[in-house]
């Protein structure tokens, strides 16, 4: 078992299905994330990518199927417990705590790594004091690591610029020392320069911190540049997977994105050209 824990894939989802009433948002998707790797999940809008994310992080319980992380079954587990095991995430539409400062946001991210309880906090025992100091320092370090100017550390999150909010969100996710980072469209609203920076940043996380990253992304340049493995969802089903090149040339994928007619037109054009 311990063999499998240290060598097998970090996360395995098998046969995951999620239905809302009559609608099947995710349909029998099986999927694995290797250790120390960046993999991507792509698909047209409404393909079920974010729903799948929410299942992995425990916000939704899957109707069918299982998810295991690091050798442990986490199917339908509570989000905070899954987080404590080492799965951290960001959100498609940034969800920072608006009336907290950037620093405090990152401190909340360390919640599961802290011990202070009700009475300890009221009495502010030396142990609690030390912990607070440590957590504060670590939060500042992380904010610097993601590139937020120190002057902005004590700004309320809601007053930060869009790009800085994205940085704080990533720092907040990193604060729990995760093994797996789930990024939901992190480059949305960024220009190509910024996207490129983020791509290099993700590689740093993988290489320097040994993280695995699961990326939902629309920007194909980012996806193709950084991912070792790509999975494509459409209408909740997995329609293709493989390395970037395989997926890009898969006719089913092209069809899902462009529609059948367009795909055929392109194919004939390719044939002619």
């Amino acid at each position: 078992m311990s063999e499998a824990t240290s060598n097998g894939p970090l996360l395995v989802a098998s046969g995951v299905t999620k239905q809302f009433g009559g609608l099947t948002a995710v349909d029998d998707v099986s999927f694995a994330i290797p250790r120390n790797a960046i993999v991507s999940l792509i698909g047209p809008n409404g393909a079920g990518k974010t729903t799948f994310f929410n299942i992995l992080t425990g916000l939704y319980k899957p109707t069918l199927g299982r998810v295991s992380f690091d050798g442990r079954d986490i199917t339908g587990g509570r989000p905070d417990k899954i987080m404590a095991l080492g799965v951290a995430r960001t959100f498609q539409n940034i969800r920072l705590f608006g009336t907290m400062t950037a620093l405090e946001n990152v401190m909340v991210g360390q919640h599961t790594r802290m011990k202070a309880g009700l009475f300890g906090s009221i009495l502010r025992l030396p142990r609690v004091r030390r912990e607070e100091r440590h957590v504060r320092d670590k939060a500042a370090e992380l904010l610097s690591f993601v590139g937020l100017r120190p002057a902005l550390h004590d700004q309320l999150a809601t007053n930060l610029s869009y790009g800085d909010q994205r940085r704080v969100e990533i720092a907040r996710a990193l604060a729990s020392d995760p093994k797996l980072l789930l990024l939901d469209e992190p480059t949305a609203g960024m220009n190509p320069q910024e996207s490129g920076d983020l791509t290099r940043f993700m590689e740093r996380l993988r290489d320097e911190l040994g993280l695995s990253i699961l990326l939902i992304e629309h920007d194909m340049k980012v996806v193709m540049g950084v991912s070792e493995h790509v999975t494509v969802l459409d209408h909740g089903e997995k329609i293709s997977e493989g390395d970037a090149l395989t997926v890009r040339t898969d006719p089913q994928v092209v069809e899902a994105y462009l529609g059948k007619q367009e795909a055929e037109r392109q194919r004939t054009e390719d044939g002619v050209g």
Binding site: M83, R95, T99
Partner: peptide, 14 residues
């Protein structure tokens, strides 16, 4: 108070 979904996703036991 600010965002329950984000809070539990960040490890706060609701």
């Amino acid at each position: 108070r600010e965002d329950e979904v984000a809070a539990v996703s960040m490890g706060v036991p609701a």
